[in-house]
Design a binder for these strands. Structure first.
Lengths: 134, 134
DNA sequence: CGGTATCCGGCGTGATACTG
DNA sequence: CAGTATCACGCCGGATACCG
C-alpha cells in the first residue's frame, strides 16, 4: 500500500517525503480558475443539478460568453457535467452534473465551509501583512 | 500582486471597482497554483509542522528558489504559516504552520481524498473526450 | 543560506465580431 | 440562443545573476 497524503502518493527518500508527480493539484487548479467554482455552485443549487446556458450566463455576474463556454467544456471534459443539446427553434442547451460531479459536492462543501469560517481571519492577516510591508 | 480594497480583491471595470466572484475561489486559486499544495503537504508531514527553507527546496522536486520564496510569502500573507529567522552564521530560516494553517489540513484532506478516489475516472473521461474531438 | 532583481515567453482571460 | 474566431494584454512562472 503506497503512502499518501492529500491524495498525493509519495515515497520516503533519505527519510524525507518525496512526492511523485501530482494529480490533485490538477483538480484544484481547475476549481481554482476564475469561473469554475461559480459554475459548479450554481449547478449544485439548481433543481436536478440542471441549468441552461443562458441561466448560467445571467446568474454569474461578469462572465463572458466565451469564458462560460470554455469553463463548461473543461468540466465536460473531466466528466463532471454533461451537455444536452435540444435542436429546437431557438436552440436550447442544458448542462447537468454527472453522478461523479454530484458526488464531488459534499466533499467540496467540507472544504469550502472551512474557507467560509476562516475567510475573515485570512483577510485580516493579509491586511496586516500588507500594512507591515508598505 | 492583486488589487485590494479592505483586503478584498477586485478589478477595475468602467472605472468602477467590481469585486471578483467569491471568497472560496481565492483560496482554491491559491492552493491550485503550481507549488502551494506541495509546500503545505511537506509541512503537514514534518514534525511540529516545521521545516527550514533548504529542506523544502530539496524536498520539492523542480521548484526554483524564487518560486519557493513567493509561495511561502503568499502563505505567510494569508496567515497559514509563519517565518522564523535565526541570525546565525550561516543564517537559518524555518517555516511552520500556524494554528489556522494546521486546522486547514483535515478539511483539505476530505476533499483531496475524493480527488484520489475519482482521479482515474477523470483521466479516463478526459481521454475519451479528447479522442472524440480528434 | 536564503533570499532579490531582472528579463522573457506562454497562457489564461477579456473584448469584439461573426454564425448556424 | 448558444456558440466560434480573432486579437490584445497582463501576469504567472522559469532562468539567470547578484546580495547580506
Amino acid at each position: 500500500m503506497q503512502k499518501q497524503i492529500h491524495g498525493r502518493p509519495y515515497e520516503e527518500r533519505n527519510n524525507k517525503p518525496h512526492f511523485t508527480p501530482c494529480a490533485p493539484n490538477a483538480v484544484l487548479a481547475r476549481l481554482g480558475d476564475k469561473w469554475t467554482i461559480l459554475v459548479m455552485s450554481h449547478l449544485a443549487l439548481a433543481p436536478g443539478h440542471r441549468l441552461r446556458f443562458s441561466e448560467l450566463k445571467n446568474g454569474i455576474d461578469g462572465i463572458t460568453q466565451r469564458m462560460l463556454t470554455l469553463t463548461l467544456r473543461n468540466l465536460e471534459r473531466d466528466g463532471l457535467l454533461e451537455r444536452d443539446y435540444f435542436p429546437e427553434v431557438p436552440p436550447r442547451v442544458e448542462y447537468h452534473l454527472t453522478e461523479m460531479g454530484a458526488s464531488m459536492l459534499p466533499a467540496l462543501e467540507g472544504f469550502t465551509s472551512w474557507i467560509r469560517n476562516n475567510w475573515p481571519n485570512i483577510e485580516a492577516c493579509r491586511a496586516r501583512y500588507d500594512q507591515r510591508n508598505a
